[in-house]
Amino acid sequence: MPIDYIPILAFLIFALMFAVGTIAMSSIVGTKKTTPEKMMPYECGVDPIGSARRRFPVKFFIIAVLFIIFDIEAVFLYPWAVIFKDLKVFGFIEMGIFILILFVGLIYAWKKGALEWE
């Protein structure tokens, strides 16, 4: 029922109000004395080197794509788990084939060294 999701909506609205509220309050109440140090991007105390808008190594991309694929696999597992008892052995075998095909992909990624952080 959609009515069951009202707590989630309330939570999202509260989170939004809290975020907007704290930023608004700090700009209303706080003093605005800026120094060059204060206007620097916060990098845990280390001086930033160069712009953040630069190209990132492609190895991040492989990890992201692998994440997406196994994320979608997990999405398929969820409805399967809901009716697992009704499907009996048939459901076990069909999901076995599905996971096996994706497992081949995982083995391939592993053998090609896609999971290595070189």
Partner: peptide
């Protein structure tokens, strides 16, 4: 549903071939 797994497998292979 089973073909979806082959589609995902193709995505794994494609991403690795393109980026390695």
């Amino acid at each position: 549903f089973e073909i979806t797994s082959i589609l995902l497998l193709a995505a794994i292979v494609g991403a690795i071939v393109l980026s390695k």
